[in-house]
Amino acid sequence: MELILSIAIGVLATSGIWLLLRPRSFQVIVGLCLLSYAVNLFIFSMGRLTPGRPAIMPKGGFVDPTIYADPLPQALVLTAIVISFATTALFLVVLLASRGLTGTDHVDGKERDQS
């Protein structure tokens, strides 16, 4: 399971980084989304994998923390998900405005041969 997840993180990150380095702005947006999945999963996996034991406590009584999933990375990732949605939206709008303004979807606002 650990192996599969880490390979998955690797594939997501590779695709994300590759797209990030591409010249078209839509590629960069998709790349950022993929990269954010990879990073979210990576941060989440820092709490180790614990199938089937969500961090829902009993009401009262003794709590043995070792049998539950680590809640802290989850809390970190939860806000990260919402924030990454916000940055995607922001970048999308910048992309559209830049396309309207410059007439090209190259990230630099001009084609390579024009520079």
Binding site: I7, A38, S45
Partner: peptide, 12 residues
């Protein structure tokens, strides 16, 4: 990608 995968595996 390989780097982050290896790192993730090592910690997990």
């Amino acid at each position: 990608g390989t780097g982050i995968a290896v790192l993730a595996y090592a910690i997990m």
